[in-house]
């Protein structure tokens, strides 16, 4: 009696193994933070490990062999091609995941509400307000305060914080987007669930840089300003440096 491999039975464990590898590799390489909100990273990591475990243990729980075996039919080949699509897409993923073109397409001009920002900023409600106040109270207007772009949006919507930070020298990081001769933008992509729902938040900076290519990460030093009664901040450029290391974009 000949015991043969059932070719179609291999589709599932092989697919699960490949998908598990993709999830683990994305997590370990740090690319996951550019395509998924960090709140889901543990789920993705655990699920990747689970898929690998299922793949490895599959032959213990399911029969891969039978007396007759089985051949790969046309329908099964089509299924196999579809199941392999994520692997092909993963192999084609660019190094620069959040390209300038992608950021520009997803631009949002609405400020996010403080409650919505809590999804991205750590700490209990109210804690950030206290920290931002303490931070600005400890320095003079000419000393530099390090701000995240989201912290800036948050403080822009609070009248007290807006008054305290008006005229303050700050350092903010983000991706450079060209605008015109005398203005540019620094932008970050906000991901609520995954990159498909990503929205770009940007700060307009008054000043000129020698940068040529959109999307490079820069650290801008400037003077923060608010026009009367508007929460939209503007930054007067003092200096900038180009960041060679891509910062964690998992906001």
């Amino acid at each position: 009696m000949r015991i043969l491999l059932k070719a179609q039975s291999l589709l599932l464990p092989l697919s699960l193994g490949a998908w598990g590898c993709i999830l683990l590799r994305l997590h370990l390489s740090g690319q996951l933070s550019q395509i998924q909100n960090p709140a889901y990273h543990d789920i993705t990591l655990s699920f990747g490990i689970l898929l690998m475990l299922i793949c490895v243990s599959y032959p213990f729980f399911f029969d891969l062999f039978s007396e007759n075996g089985s051949h790969l039919t046309a329908q099964a080949a089509g299924r196999a091609a579809l199941l392999a699509l994520p692997l092909a897409a993963y192999l084609l993923l660019p190094e620069d995941l959040q390209s300038a073109q992608f950021l520009r397409q997803r631009a949002s001009y609405n400020l996010l509400s403080p409650a919505a920002l809590q999804r991205f900023l750590p700490g209990k409600p109210g804690e950030l307000h206290r920290l931002l106040l303490e931070q600005v109270d400890e320095v003079s207007k000419d000393e530099v305060v390090l701000l995240d772009l989201l912290e800036l949006i948050y403080l822009s919507q609070d009248r007290v914080l807006r008054e305290r930070y008006n005229g303050q020298r700050v350092v903010i990081s983000g991706q450079w987007l060209s605008e015109d001769e005398t203005h540019f933008k620094i932008a970050r992509l906000l991901i609520f669930c995954c990159a498909a729902d990503g929205r770009t938040v940007a700060l307009r900076v008054n000043g000129r840089t020698d940068l040529k290519s959109d999307g490079v990460f820069i650290e801008v030093t400037g003077t923060l300003g608010f026009k009367t009664d508007t929460p939209v901040p503007e930054l007067e450029l003092i200096d900038y440096i180009q960041n060679n290391d891509t910062p964690d974009s998992g906001m």
């Binding site: 993709i22 994520p86 390209s99």
Partner: peptide, 22 residues
């Protein structure tokens, strides 16, 4: 446009897969 397509496809795939399994 291939980089954008692959990025969006992979992100939807990675995001939805655990919930499909659940």
């Amino acid at each position: 446009r291939l980089p954008e397509i692959t990025l969006l496809f992979i992100s939807l795939f990675v995001q939805g897969l655990p919930f499909l399994f659940l």
